[in-house]
Simulated assay, not measured.
Amino acid sequence: MEKLPKIGLPILIGIIVIIIVIAKSAVTIDSGEAGVLFRTFGEGVVIDEPPMGEGFHIVAPWNKVFVYETRRQEIFEKMKVLSSNGLDIQLDASAWYQPDEKNLGRLHQEIGENYLQRIILPTIRSAARSVVGRYTPEQLYSSKRDAIQKEIFEETKKIVDGQYIVLDEILVRDVTLPPTIKQAIERKLKQEQESLEYEFRLVTAEKEAQKVRIEAQGKADANRILSASLTDKILQDKGIDATNRLAESPNSKVVIIGSGESGMPIILGNQ
């Protein structure tokens, strides 16, 4: 009975050691992640093999696994930049990014896990300062927001693409100007709108006046043509026709005496 504890103690110690080794060797990589293996007694960071995928893995306890999130991620950044005339502009932007999974080993070896702070953010800030510095506050406030968003993205992507990082998009969410500048721009825009409205009213009035002139000219031309076509003979024939129709009416009593200068009867009255 006394020997059992002596035999069981090494077994218990062995079991504990095995559990510790397995715990140290077991690596679980969650969904949307990948692992970079570091061989302590080998070549170091493994770059010539695909990264470790999702699931359960057993590695030598003296090796290490660095886990990276490979899903698309978003970072928000507030920046103070200068416009073309030296005014402070606050830019609120966000970036969609993810590591290049095929080159995850190289990313870890050359840049490291904090690639966001080392590469992405400094590059976005530099590109934003460069791009915004080309525009006036008025352009940034009104018509050029889409343009600066595109230019910041393109300039950032040129650098980031060579750093084993995939940059999907940069969004400019807000541009904040100094209050006095913003108010001045709004007043100017309001005045321009009122000026455009006034010009529109003038153009409309001019078109209406032109329409009236055209109609009046048309009527005048028609009267002139009609007057030129009404000869004395035509007028006399029309008068005879009208007199005949009036005389044929059963309800009319016509008295004719004398004649006018044209020889037409003169109608004095009817009942």
Score class of each variant (00 low, 15 high):
120 I>K: 07
75 I>K: 03
82 L>F: 09
77 E>G: 05
122 P>H: 03
93 A>N: 05
136 T>G: 04
80 K>H: 13
95 A>D: 12
76 F>P: 06
142 S>H: 08
148 I>T: 00
105 G>Q: 06
107 L>H: 04
143 S>D: 15
150 K>S: 13
87 L>I: 10
147 A>N: 12
139 Q>M: 11
135 Y>Q: 01
108 H>P: 06
98 Q>S: 14
116 L>G: 00
114 N>P: 09
129 R>N: 14
74 E>S: 07
141 Y>R: 05
98 Q>D: 07
74 E>W: 08
96 W>R: 11
107 L>V: 08
86 G>I: 03
149 Q>S: 07
135 Y>I: 05
82 L>P: 10
143 S>C: 14
98 Q>R: 11
76 F>M: 06
146 D>F: 10
96 W>G: 13
104 L>Y: 00
73 Q>Y: 08
145 R>W: 09
76 F>W: 13
91 L>F: 11
132 V>H: 01
88 D>R: 12
117 Q>I: 09
142 S>I: 14
136 T>C: 05
118 R>L: 14
147 A>R: 10
96 W>C: 11
137 P>F: 08
123 T>Q: 04
108 H>V: 05
143 S>T: 15
141 Y>A: 06
122 P>T: 00
144 K>G: 13
85 N>E: 10
81 V>A: 08
78 K>S: 12
106 R>Q: 13
104 L>V: 06
82 L>H: 07
105 G>I: 05
137 P>Y: 00
